[in-house]
Design a protein around this nucleic acid. Structure first.
Lengths: 147, 147
DNA sequence: ACACTCCGTTCACAGTGGTTAATAGACGTC
DNA sequence: GACGTCTATTAACCACTGTGAACGGAGTGT
């Protein structure tokens, strides 16, 4: 099964090229692929990746590098490996963002932990009580969520 | 820091097993490898990884998964891909992992969103109701949080 | 012009990440 | 006991990641 075009990737290529374009000494131009590959291999003391492969990654001809090679590249450019994942993580839904906000409240965190394990029946009852509380405090009934 | 430690023996395996052990609903035991693989593939709409391969990762028989599969796993367990990296700075507490497990339940997610914005007084009342429900269902009063 | 060097690019192939199929064991149930 | 269903485990594969060896082109020095 060819995965050539199925996964909307290319994010690695884009991020890599951005690193090449931006991360280099002000006194000189961007690093070249062989330069970076050599530096990485030299520092590691063994071959981590080839210049050819690095070039293929930049061109998007190879799209799914392994954990270790991505780490080495992030390391060379002095960024967190997270840099290559930002896209996927950044596509958090509004719901996730609101969840993160709500969970900063210790009371709510404890509430979640205590609710976990209850039957769906109990959860429904609790949800109803929350709706009552919302009504009493003049809040809108419920915010519908997708998914 | 050092490149060679990125593939240090069993880092991925250890982290993965900790996720399996920690991130699951309180009402049931840990997820199985086939369960997780199926859930990931189903959500993606195409095959991302096999149950066998996931098992091999857990056992340390395969150590260097690709970008995409590592992302899928982190996503399933509700943690950042950063979790699998050696030089991870802010290690997740078990509380956070238990939260992640609970939040896989849509009902609980909705409950959190609806609770956010309520007065502390209402929250206290809701917390009390949850404790009653726990008692009725024979669960321990409250799960202490390490913090 | 010529030689030299370095980079980008291509391509066939090597190596390994990842899959499929099959077996054995655990658990429930009829 | 026998059957069905689930998971763990193994081994034989396959596809894709990753490599080495080229070739062409651009710059540099003679």
């Amino acid at each position: 099964m060819s995965v050539e075009e199925s996964t909307a990737d290319g994010v690695v290529a884009a991020r890599l090229n951005h690193l090449f374009a931006t991360v280099h000494p002000a006194s000189r131009g961007p690093y070249t692929s062989p330069e970076v590959a050599s530096a990485i291999n030299e520092k590691a003391g063994h071959q981590v990746l080839s210049a050819t492969y690095l070039w293929q990654l930049r061109k998007g001809k190879r799209q799914d590098p392994t954990h270790s090679r991505l780490t080495a590249l992030a390391d060379f450019f002095g960024v967190s490996p997270m840099y290559f994942y930002e896209d996927e993580t950044a596509k958090r839904t509004d719901e996730q963002l609101r969840l993160a906000g709500a969970l900063r409240n210790p009371t709510i965190r404890q509430l979640v932990l205590d609710t976990d394990g209850l039957s769906e029946q109990s959860m429904t009852a609790i949800a109803a009580m929350i709706q009552s509380a919302r009504a009493m405090e003049g809040l809108p009934p419920s915010i519908p969520t997708a998914q």
